[in-house]
């Protein structure tokens, strides 16, 4: 089996041991069965069990292993090892803009706080019918590209507006979720949802930088959803 050696340059910080963060140079042998960055990380951890990162499904649906890979946010389990140029170390850092708990693990409290702030659940105050609420296939299609979000945080932590105002700006992930409910024909709280977002910080910190679109490992487009929210606000106001 052919093996090759990968060089890594990894952000390390354990508040229990380290006074300040440092970058670790470490190499690991991978073979042809190791396709993804996560495979290499698992081998790295076998070498140095103190390297801390989150991971779970290893197929890009749980959103655990988001990190900053050579300067770009992405999921380790969906990043091909073959894309890394030989001879250059792979630089791994935690997602930017959030407090680091340890190594590649960030504190996502702020990110989830924003998600929770948009009332992320269906609101329909009519008594539920005995059967399903009807929805046409066309109406259901409106939710495509919205409900698939895995809450990995790649988008929001790539967004400068979120870096400056993580406490006030909902961020691309939260706004995508907000529009997911606005777009759902079964939801009855559209006005309240729009009220909730009409704020110079919560929604209008989005300056269409589109880093979120670039960062999303699921290929979703939060900027488009944000644009639709703004269009609805205009529609409501005039």
């Amino acid at each position: 089996m052919t093996t090759r050696t990968l060089q890594f340059n990894i952000y390390r910080y354990d508040p229990d041991q380290d006074k300040k963060p440092w970058m670790q140079d470490i190499a690991v042998e991978v073979d042809s069965t190791d396709r993804k960055l996560l495979d290499a990380l698992v081998k790295l951890k076998a070498k140095d069990d103190a390297i801390a990162f989150r991971r779970s499904c290893r197929e890009g649906v749980c959103g655990s292993d988001a990190m900053n890979i050579n300067g770009k946010n992405g999921l380790a389990c969906l990043t091909d090892l073959s894309v890394f140029p030989a001879g250059k170390p792979i630089v791994l850092r935690p997602l930017p803009g959030l407090p680091v708990i340890r190594d590649l693990i960030v504190d996502m409290t702020q990110f989830f706080k924003q998600y929770h702030s948009i009332t992320p659940y269906l609101i329909n105050n009519e008594p539920p019918p005995e059967r399903e609420r009807l929805q046409s296939p066309e109406d259901r299609e409106e939710l495509d590209g919205l409900y698939e979000c895995i809450l990995c945080g790649c988008c929001s932590t790539a967004c400068p507006s979120f870096w400056w105002n993580p406490d006030k700006f909902v961020g691309p992930a939260g706004l995508l979720a907000a529009y997911r409910f606005i777009a759902d024909t079964r939801d009855q709280a559209t006005s309240a949802r729009l009220d909730n977002l009409e704020d110079p910080y919560r929604l209008f910190r989005c300056h269409t930088i589109m880093n979120c679109v670039d960062a999303c490992p699921r290929g979703l487009n939060p900027t488009l959803a944000i644009g639709k929210i703004k269009a609805m606000l205009v529609q409501r106001a005039i």
């Binding site: 110079p200 910080y201 703004k230 606000l233 106001a237």
Partner: peptide, 15 residues
């Protein structure tokens, strides 16, 4: 305390 909900921003954005 972090307070939001100023209910403006749309006019500015549109402007």
């Amino acid at each position: 305390r972090v307070v939001v909900g100023a209910h403006y921003g749309l006019k500015d954005w549109l402007a």
